[in-house]
Design a protein around this nucleic acid. Structure first.
Length: 1116
DNA sequence: ATTGGGCAGCGTTAC
DNA sequence: GCTGCCCAAT
């Protein structure tokens, strides 16, 4: 009974002063918590909820918490459950969710009050695109002219792909419509606005009427209709407190909803707590306002206070110095900010490297990871992350990690439901439950290809559009019967007929129990659509050459497996309970549901779709499933992997070591921040004035948004990325010029920022620093391991690595060409792998030929691909027998057998200069004990001697309302808590369309029939490793300490690399050998770079060829 | 005339 | 991975 007090007491004891003020703040007023990165934002939020429940005795059902993602909602729920485990409080009664999901719940109950027809659904993003695309295609000429004219007040155009023309673009239209909706403006209201843009009004009106025809809402509608509902009628129950997480990412309609929620069913607003950080506002492209905090102060009917959290429990002071210097570049719009204070500091400032050429960047990151990982008992691969701005940056990094055999995962791969097979299946299901799905009917007719193409589809579509009074499905039946005149081939007619029969058949399962009905429907659609056949027998292979009759069903086909996963979800959602429950409030529905089975099925399916669009990350994305399995492995085998993520995807997460490659103009800041700026300012001027919800604000709103430069958002993005790092941070850029679109180091890397950076990792500079590194990670240098592992040697190797411009791995004083053979757990004993010691291709070949048993492993069962090998050897130029030989590209010119001039590497000073002119290389110092480096004011190195902690006098917080002055305790418990929170919970791989995602690396016994090929390859000189009997390839390829089942999406890269091979091959065929070799020997850099390319290519050749789920990894 | 396979080029960020 | 384009097959 006294539990609550204990719980509360313990809870409060873990908070620092500002946090405690926030948690205990008057629950009846408005509170803003400005929580910079790592300041315990989630902790404050959850603690406040607990405090409201336990201390103020607010009922759980009277509390609303909004989060930014559904994942965050779930985490919050879990955390609260844990914190309240000793009490009788029902956590699941708290309303926790994103604005969208909460609005969905509201509208399911009360939607009819704002005119929503029963059975409405949420449209998919793709469908939205298709609708707008059609609208653009059919727009009247005067609209097109207007949109292109100088009279326009909103820009809907974008440069077209090929030409220099500008044309109305779906994404722009969508964005502008979305903007109107986030101001809760209906089409007719917008048209009546004196400043409206006729073109936009046209599209908006048409678009909404299209949605109306489909009886569907888009994402923005969920918010807009809820807003209109709640302003009209207080239909929410008694809500006592509303809490909003990630407040900086909410847009204006969400803020209005927040106020409406807080009003509940009463007239006076109840308490509101918002938590967020304006500096981390990176969603302006979704109409989020960085100025939300100021706006809220103006709009709230309550007294509004602010608490600023300044104690950072995540990063070292050095990292915060860098990020703080960066964010202070933004002069406008930053008020009341105090610099964050770290709880610890280390002698390892963030590292910045400006690479001379692009390909070095990824490889050097991989090598850096290997050096750090080599330290015994210190880092797990889980401790590393690589954050990119754009998805396309991932490719190179992926390649490099594969090269170095570093396990990785990519956060937030493509959404599960966007996969082709999944969306196709969902279209079919939609057709089965509704006659009104013209988009889905057409998609289903087209895919999988059955003989009905775009032309016929367009004709059918025309008929749908010409007869809006009839449902698309009934029209299709008329077409098939000939009741509608349409010229078409017999083939097309039979396709339509089959489709109709399939749908009708799938609709006949309504007398069985729900679950088996659903299963029957699903199976029918999967089979009779032809998809099953396609995936099991054809997918991937060329249709033309699979006419052999001895095809076998491939149940391992990833698309097939995805379908099975979808089926599982389809049969097993538990939202159905909620759904029926919520429907029962609408009296009209309940009888239907109980009377007719078909309606139950339909309701179920509709709920399935709605939940799918909103809870995708939670229940539908591939993440969860795989995550669980990987976690199991994790605990068992210590599996771990490096995380690759976009910066957006990394929000809220943290890692001890973070790499941010591509800090270059055009990426950070993105080239898009330019385009935006022109259109943004253009449209902003008129658009902000249309805000109906508050006529007083627009002026300041307008002002602030013109203050808000698009580039500021990019800077904040960079800020977010940097503050993900706890201990070590690496920034890198690429010298200007290599790629014309890449303009050299980012403008954000100002001299001031660079002063906080150094260009090599201090942590590996000497043994003492390494010991400090262990300390910082709360680990001990393992005395037993250290016998086998020489820190001194590592320090030397690393220094040499730096001197060698990070071009290749140095281990035990030697250049390691193929790092994946490296045993990074040992460096005192000489490498037992002679392969890494070869100097010339010939020498290498020699070693390999002697290594007989090795060769025999390469032939995996290639049962169905009899021709695989011959084509492989075609790709392999005869003489390119040793791809590791760094001096050559195939076909090999004779000269290049000369060993490299440097072995072990020792580079000439001239070259060094030419390599990195802007960042002079600091000579490696053997006086290893000295780790306080004096600053040379002219270069980029940093002073490191400044002791931590920072004195209280630098507290610049000047918040007028509530000043956070406490220095904060360095409470270990808090620290621990914060360090352990927010662990990455994401997929170790994404479900990918590439079929070899699940690499079957089981190496099975050699096939004798392969002997001939074996001879052939032997002649060609492929080099292979010993593969022991039934071990998985992963076991062989990876450090035994990091055993994983290798399920990396390797083909993403391999496919790309295949293209590169073809290019390289055709190029080398064209150009004469002579000029080729000249080019290649031009510089030492070139030859070393070609090593990377070469080995990438050779590996890709093999991998790309050997796919189909029966991959053998032939690694040299 | 229609369809579908093959190929080359291009892609912000994401609820 | 999607789109536009060419070409071969119907």
């Amino acid at each position: 009974m006294a539990m609550p007090n204990t719980v509360l007491g313990q809870l409060l004891a873990t908070l620092n002063k500002q946090q405690r003020i926030a948690v205990e703040f008057d629950p009846n007023n408005a509170l803003q918590v400005i929580a910079g990165p790592g300041t315990g934002k989630t902790k404050v939020l959850t603690s406040r909820v607990v405090y409201l429940l336990l201390h103020h005795k607010i009922e759980p059902k009277d509390i609303v918490v909004t989060t930014f993602t559904n994942k965050a909602a779930k985490e919050m729920m879990d955390r609260l459950a844990k914190m309240l485990s000793g009490t009788a409080i029902r956590v699941d009664e708290i309303t926790i969710g994103t604005f969208h999901s909460i609005c969905l719940r509201v509208l399911l109950k009360y939607g009819f009050k704002v005119g929503l027809n029963r059975g409405w659904r949420i449209v998919e993003e793709k469908e939205v695109e298709a609708i707008i695309h059609d609208l653009i295609k059919t727009m009247p000429d005067q609209i097109r002219d207007y949109a292109n004219s100088y009279k326009r007040s909103v820009n809907l155009c974008r440069p077209t792909r090929n030409k220099d023309e500008w044309a109305v673009h779906p994404q722009m239209v969508k964005k502008e419509i979305s903007r109107l909706k986030s101001n809760a403006l209906l089409p007719e209201e917008y048209e009546n606005d004196s400043n409206h843009d006729p073109a936009l009004a046209h599209f908006y009106t048409k678009y909404q009427s299209e949605l109306g025809k489909l009886n569907a809402l888009d994402f923005d509608d969920l918010l807009m209709y809820t807003f209109r509902l709640l302003t009209k009628e207080r239909c929410l129950p008694d809500i006592k407190h509303v809490l909003v997480d990630e407040f900086q990412d909410t847009n204006s309609i969400q803020m209005d909803l927040m106020f409406l929620f807080a009003k509940g069913d009463h007239h006076v607003s109840r308490g509101i707590t918002v938590v967020g950080d304006p500096d981390q506002s990176i969603y302006a492209f979704r109409n989020a306002l960085a100025q939300n905090f100021q706006q809220m102060q103006q709009k709230t009917p309550l007294h509004c206070s602010q608490v600023v959290l300044v104690e950072n429990y995540r990063s070292s002071q050095k990292i915060l110095d860098t990020s703080e210097t960066l964010i202070q570049q933004q002069i406008k719009g930053r008020t009341h900010r105090a610099p964050l204070r770290a709880q610890f500091d280390v002698e390892f400032p963030p590292v910045y490297v400006n690479f001379p050429v692009g390909f070095l960047q990824s490889a050097s990151i991989a090598r850096e990871i290997l050096y750090l990982k080599a330290l015994p008992n210190l880092f797990s691969y889980n401790d590393f992350s690589i954050l990119v701005r754009q998805r396309r940056q991932i490719k190179n990094i992926e390649t490099a990690l594969i090269e170095h055999r570093i396990p990785y995962k990519i956060v937030k791969g493509r959404a599960f439901w966007e996969l082709k097979e999944i969306s196709a299946m969902m279209h079919l299901i939609k057709c089965a439950y509704s006659d009104n799905e013209k988009f889905s009917i057409l998609s289903s007719l087209l895919y999988p290809a059955k003989g009905l193409g775009q032309t016929s589809a367009d004709k059918i579509k025309k008929i749908f559009e010409d007869n809006p009074s009839q449902t698309p499905f009934s029209l299709l039946q008329d077409i098939e019967k000939g009741a509608i005149n349409l010229t078409m081939t017999t083939k097309v007619r039979s396709v339509i007929k089959d489709f109709i029969q399939m749908i009708n058949f799938s609709r006949s399962f309504d007398k069985a129990p729900l679950k088996s009905s659903l299963e029957n429907i699903f199976d029918t659609l999967y089979e009779r659509s032809g998809m099953k056949n396609e995936y099991l027998y054809f997918d991937g292979g060329k249709k033309s050459d699979t006419n052999d009759s001895n095809r076998e069903a491939n149940y391992e086909n990833p698309r097939h497996k995805n379908i099975l996963l979808l089926k599982k979800y389809f049969l097993g959602i538990d939202e159905i309970e909620d759904f029926i429950h919520s429907q029962s409030d609408q009296k009209t529905f309940i009888e239907d549901i109980q009377q007719v089975d078909t309606n139950v099925i339909r309701s179920y399916i509709r709920t399935f779709f709605n939940s799918l669009s909103l809870y995708a990350t939670e229940s539908t994305s591939s993440d969860n499933e795989i995550d669980r399995t990987s976690k199991r492995k994790n605990s068992r085998n210590g599996e771990a992997c490096v995380t690759i993520s976009t910066i957006h995807g990394a929000k809220g997460l943290e890692w001890p070591v973070v790499f941010i490659p591509g800090c270059i103009e055009g990426i950070i800041p993105s080239i898009f921040s330019r385009d935006e700026s022109s259109s943004e300012t253009e449209s902003d001027t008129e658009e902000e004035g249309t805000n109906t919800s508050d006529k007083n604000v627009p002026k300041s709103n307008k002002k602030s948004s013109s203050l808000e430069e698009p580039v500021d958002e990019e800077r904040r993005m960079f800020f977010v990325a940097q503050t993900r790092a706890k201990l070590l941070l690496y920034l890198s850029s690429i010298k200007e010029g290599e790629n014309p679109t890449q303009g050299g180091p980012s403008r954000f890397l100002t001299p001031e920022v660079r002063k906080t950076l150094i260009n090599e990792q201090n942590a590996l500079k000497n043994e003492k620093n390494i010991e400090l590194l262990y300390k910082s990670m709360n680990k001990k240098v393992p005395s037993d391991l250290i016998k086998r592992f020489s820190l001194k040697k590592l320090v030397q190797d690393y220094a040499q690595f730096i001197e060698n411009r990070r071009e290749s791995m140095i281990w035990n004083g030697r250049v390691i060409r193929n790092s994946f053979t490296l045993d990074i757990t040992r460096n005192t004993v000489a490498m037992d792998d002679p392969i890494s010691d070869f100097t010339t291709a010939a020498a290498h070949l020699q070693t390999e030929v002697n290594k007989k048993p090795v060769l025999e492993r390469q032939f995996q069962t290639m049962s169905r691909k009899g021709s695989t090998l011959s084509s492989t050897s075609k790709l392999w130029p005869k003489k390119a027998y040793a791809p590791q030989a760094n001096q050559r590209l195939s076909p090999s010119p004779p000269k290049v057998h000369a060993p490299t001039t440097t072995y072990p590497l020792q580079e000439s000073p001239t070259k060094k200069k030419s390599y990195a002119p802007s960042y002079p290389h600091k000579p490696y110092s053997t006086t290893g004990t000295e780790f306080k480096i004096k600053q040379n004011k002219t270069d980029n190195d940093n002073i490191l001697e400044k002791p931590f902690p920072i004195s209280a006098s630098n507290d610049r917080a000047s918040n007028p309302k509530m000043l956070a002055t406490s220095k904060g305790s360095t409470n270990e418990a808090i620290k621990k808590e914060l360090f352990s929170q927010n662990q990455v919970i994401s997929s170790p791989k994404r479900i990918s369309r590439t079929k070899s995602v699940t690499r079957k690396l089981i190496v099975s016994p050699i096939m004798i029939e392969d002997k001939k090929r074996y001879e052939e390859v032997k002649k060609n000189g492929s080099v292979h490793h010993t593969v022991a009997g039934d071990r998985t390839a992963a076991e062989i390829l990876h450090d035994p300490d990091d055993l994983i089942i290798d399920n990396r999406p390797i083909l993403t890269s391999a496919k790309t690399l295949m293209k590169a091979i073809k290019k390289a091959d055709s190029k080398s065929n064209q150009s004469s050998q002579k000029s080729f070799s000249e080019h290649q020997l031009k510089t030492e850099e070139a030859s070393s770079s070609q090593f990377d390319i070469l080995s990438q290519l050779s590996r890709a050749k093999k991998k790309a060829k050997l796919n189909d789920g029966e991959i053998i990894v032939i690694d040299d």
